[in-house]
């Protein structure tokens, strides 16, 4: 299919990015790995006149970790780099797992975690875990920087809280709390390499036998990755018995709003939210107890 003509810019600084964004107007598109953007252009869904690549910008690729301040993943850090980064593998194994489970090796060597978030697909593999871990997104614009909780970032399929001329520079994940475990599971029609039809992520913090804190997010079952607050309420302050976990699963299922499409029926998705919720809760619970 016809690839529409566009000019590609590769600025070396953020200042140049903002200059270009303002100079080229609202139709200019930001590109990190390009694995989503170029596909949309190739299929004629987008016809930008200007594409601004971020990969030349120094420092934007950084992945940094500090015991107290936590983890920062820069905008151009590749999925493959996140998947194998020793600090992430050690302290945020579920983030590494989600990155490793995204698409295929070729895509992971081009695409970025931030790009996956900014594409704002409800099925984005990296969103539920980061949401469950209470990540914050760092946004820069010509006027300066703002920080937004990730759960306020997604506005709809392909829609984010970014306003014109803004870009995401990093995602920040707090330092892992003690006695906390995370888990993410996804299902798809093909098996090992596929886009997700249902995904659920959980973070569980235990105090003794009691669940002191929990965050539960469901992917691909609504216009954005959805939180399941009522399911969380069932868990918080409780011992995570099979019965409680079962109830939370059923509740999470009731809170999801899946559609039927060619990847799965709405009914199947609803049913699987319960199954996966139970499984991620058990897994996160075990990990919380183990640390």
């Amino acid at each position: 299919m016809r690839l529409s003509r566009f000019d590609l810019y590769a600025p070396a600084t953020l200042e140049e990015v903002f200059y270009l964004l303002q100079a080229k107007g609202p139709d200019a598109r930001i590109m990190a790995g390009g694995t989503d953007l170029l596909l949309k252009i190739r299929h004629g869904a987008l016809k930008p006149k200007s594409v601004i690549g971020l990969k030349k910008i120094q420092g934007l690729k950084t992945i940094s970790f500090d015991q107290s301040s936590g983890l920062t993943i820069g905008a151009t850090a590749l999925l493959a780099e996140v998947a194998r980064h020793p600090d992430i593998v050690k302290h945020y194994p579920t983030i590494a797992q989600a990155a490793r489970g995204t698409a295929n090796p070729q895509i992971r060597n081009m695409g970025t975690v931030i790009g996956n978030l900014c594409n704002a697909s409800p099925a984005a593999d990296n969103a539920p875990t980061l949401l469950a871990m209470d990540a914050k997104i760092r946004i820069r614009g010509p006027e300066g920087e703002r920080v937004l909780p990730l759960d306020q970032f997604f506005k709809g399929p392909g829609q984010t809280a970014l306003i014109p001329y803004e870009i995401v520079t990093a995602v920040h994940v707090p330092a892992p709390s003690p006695n906390t475990g995370t888990a993410y599971l996804s299902l798809s029609a093909r098996g090992k390499m596929d886009c997700t039809a249902v995904g659920v992520a959980a973070m569980v913090t235990m105090t003794g036998k009691t669940c002191a804190g929990v965050r539960l997010f469901v992917g691909a079952c609504g216009p954005v990755p959805l939180r399941a607050p009522k399911a969380e309420d069932i868990l918080r302050g409780q011992e995570l018995t099979e019965e409680v976990v079962e109830k939370a699963g059923t509740q999470a299922s009731a809170e999801s709003r899946p559609i039927s499409d060619m990847r799965a029926s709405g009914d199947y998705r609803t049913e699987m939210v319960a199954v996966l919720t139970r499984r991620v809760l058990r897994e996160a619970h075990q990990r919380a107890l183990a640390c």
């Binding site: 295929n104 029609a189 093909r190 098996g191 090992k192 390499m193 596929d194 060619m262 990847r263």
Partner: peptide, 9 residues
């Protein structure tokens, strides 16, 4: 979306 098994499957 056409779910042909991959080598990993």
């Amino acid at each position: 979306d056409y779910k042909m098994p991959s080598s990993m499957d």
